[in-house]
Design a protein around this nucleic acid. Sequence first.
DNA 1: CGCGCCATTGAACAACTTCAACCAACGTGG
DNA 2: CCACGTTGGTTGAAGTTGTTCAATGGCGCG
Lengths: 226, 226
Amino acid sequence: MPPDLAELPIFSTLTPDQLAIVAQGMTRVTLDQGENLFLQGDPAARFFLLIEGRLKVTQLTEDGQQFIVRIVHPGELCGFGPAIGRTIFPGSAEAILPCRLLAWPRARWEPLIAAAPALAVSAIQAVGRKLDEAHTRLREMTTEDAGRRIAHLLLRLARHAGPGPDPVEIPFPITRQDIADMSGNTLHTASRIMAAWEAEGILLRARRKVIIADTAGLAAIAETRD
Amino acid sequence: MPPDLAELPIFSTLTPDQLAIVAQGMTRVTLDQGENLFLQGDPAARFFLLIEGRLKVTQLTEDGQQFIVRIVHPGELCGFGPAIGRTIFPGSAEAILPCRLLAWPRARWEPLIAAAPALAVSAIQAVGRKLDEAHTRLREMTTEDAGRRIAHLLLRLARHAGPGPDPVEIPFPITRQDIADMSGNTLHTASRIMAAWEAEGILLRARRKVIIADTAGLAAIAETRD
DNA sequence: CGCGCCATTGAACAACTTCAACCAACGTGG
DNA sequence: CCACGTTGGTTGAAGTTGTTCAATGGCGCG
């Protein structure tokens, strides 16, 4: 059992009593790269906290198009349908890196937030932040052109790599197709634009890999106002 | 004091004791058409429940573009920044019809949800629904063309008119520009597409007014899969 | 070593935006 | 109550962006 509960930031303020309640019914889950944690339409029987790795949450439209809802980073809750009154998962979650997670049955949600109100507050705030992020993406989709959207996306992904000097590597594998889906483009447009940036020395690219060589240059593209 | 608190659906399950707590610190607000309830950047000192009328919530980007976050319908909470840890309003809210609201100071949020847990649950679910809606809009923005996006938008707006036979009137004034902003188009594209629909007998239009004459026809456009 | 997945690139095309002009309804003040 | 400015709305033509279609290259795994 690698990590002690108390060492996780989200639980660090809890008393031993509260930790005991948190631990009730809790199980650990590990996923290999490429495995699915849950599929769209599955009953939302459990909710999860990602400890290590990365998850990609996607939705499939009726007509077969894929839409990437978000990337889940370590320390974040996911699949908390139960908390907002959902009974099935609205999307699928795939491990894009090997993952370790904690899982609780949905019935534990109420006792858990009752035992640790800080958790409830942070859950609500997490939902709020995601709403903000969704609005930001919506605003970008409607007011910005393809290049700026991709630039914003890469900067956002890179921020999760933690602060650091150039070059910044996006810390998980990601295909051009993923980038195109997340930024509302086709694979082709994304590929072209990023090829141009590579020529300008802003990016380094490899198979399923992106490295930002010039954060300032990319930020300049993202902020360009016509 | 027009409506009795207990008559509002959201409070209908509360006991008199709980209602007394809800009423503490509560004030009533009325707005004329065109007035602002709050402006982007204002300190989020209060949160609101819309009883009657309609609000339009917008954000202004740094470079001056407007983005319509949502329309607030009667019975919905709005401006609940305090609930998700915000101290300023991230957007502006304008009355597009004369409005009546209830308002509470932000400090009342915790006692209020403590007194009426049903309210907390419904607040979390309200945020969850908005997240869903934002994701739906995002998905539509990236996978659908202009016409289908407008069709979906109009159907969504019309649903708030309540069920009823054709023709369905969208129950608040709305400009072509608003429709374009909400569906991620320019005024021009929206105007052209809707003009075509009017010629086909699907819509009736007037200044600041849209009436759906053929809901099934519009739904067919919205669902067309290529 | 050969197949499949990921990626790149060019050319033709369609969709949407921009630019620009114009029209009609509303409201206000003389 | 009429003239006129303002706001909301329509429409055409030109221009741009991004998509579609099509072909090709290369890495990695069995």
